[in-house]
Design a protein around this nucleic acid. Structure first.
Lengths: 186, 186
DNA sequence: AAATTTATTGAACGATGTTCAAGTTCGTTG
DNA sequence: CAACGAACTTGAACATCGTTCAATAAATTT
């Protein structure tokens, strides 16, 4: 239902009708709609993980790998727009904590970026690489999120992919140069 | 009310009580809560615009300028967290179009990025610069959005600022290098 | 076959955005 | 000043949600 009607289009009564039970019975399967959304998000994240893994098969330089991953992320978001959006649009009450399995799911994603980064910057520590990975992911995510947003200027997907590829390459080049300058300041 | 309790904490009845009128009277001021949120967003955007303009006063290189703008954006988001979030969390029904004044407000933002970019890449056309500006903004926005998100790892603000500065510098350096290589391929 | 546990139902509750008929206020005009 | 009308205000009512729960049905165990 999220995939077809968006997160806002997910209603317990409609859902109950679709799976053939009373609306109250939904609460035998999940405690909340929050949990329901998180469980759908978990599946989506797993599919995203598989997609990114598939993009890593061929042997490429770390730079090319990172570009390929970013493009794969963009494509996945475009092809699974509502499911992907639901993961980021969903907000829980401030006092309710994310379940551990949901946090784990999310952290798994950074693995994909971490590996090529570690190859590019062997002198950096685990902590530092983790931060860089998160920054890189966030930047690409931002481009995809605003790029796929319809409400301002709609960007055609091919243009968006080109933009992302260009900026990821630029970011990595820039990071490498900064790293070199820091190592041997002439 | 958005500033103190977040977008989800905005209720017409509470609002009516706070401004001292019946809940129905709210609809004399705005047609919707949608319009209400957009009007608040408009004010927020205007304050953001002023903040970014203030960051541009001193004379700096275009690179430094872009870094300063990104940091100013980050700081504004941190200091106006709920108001800033409300602008991006808010979703309208798919069929309802954004009013023109709201679209204008949003497009104004790119001005700040466009100017330094035009100085850096004088050979690029208006269209191309606009796309680059949007990409750069989206990337920084992504870093700020995920960085200020509490639900995964909470990043301390100083660390986030440093990350943003580093990645913006890297992006610009990378873009310049790519531009140079395209101009004189050796 | 009876008893006990488990699952299901659908009515009911509370919150929320929105509407609207009725009432009120206030400026304009005769 | 009185009477009219426009504009505003009110708060009850409606529809739509998520969620709960007592009653009922089904399944499992004894």
């Amino acid at each position: 239902m999220i995939a077809s009607r968006g997160l806002a289009g997910l209603k317990t009564r409609d859902l109950a009708r679709e799976i053939g039970c009373a609306n109250g019975a939904v609460y035998n399967l999940v405690a909340d709609v929050d949990e329901l959304v998180l469980r759908v998000g978990s599946r989506t994240l797993r599919r995203l993980d598989e997609t990114l893994s598939a993009a890593e098969t061929a042997e490429h330089s770390p730079q090319q790998m990172l570009v390929r991953i970013a493009i794969a992320y963009c494509d996945f978001a475009a092809e699974n727009l509502e499911l992907w959006r639901a993961m980021f649009e969903h907000r829980m009450e401030a006092d309710k904590a994310l379940p551990d399995w949901s946090v784990d799911d999310q952290l798994q994603l950074f693995r994909h970026i971490y590996k090529p980064l570690a190859a590019l910057f062997p002198e950096r520590g685990t902590e530092e690489l983790g931060i860089t990975a998160r920054s890189l992911f966030s930047a690409v995510h931002g481009m995809v999120a605003l790029g796929l947003e319809q409400r301002l200027v709609a960007v055609p997907l091919p243009a968006l992919r080109k933009e992302i590829a260009g900026l990821v390459r630029a970011m990595i080049d820039g990071l490498i140069r900064a790293s070199e300058l820091a190592a041997s300041p002439d």
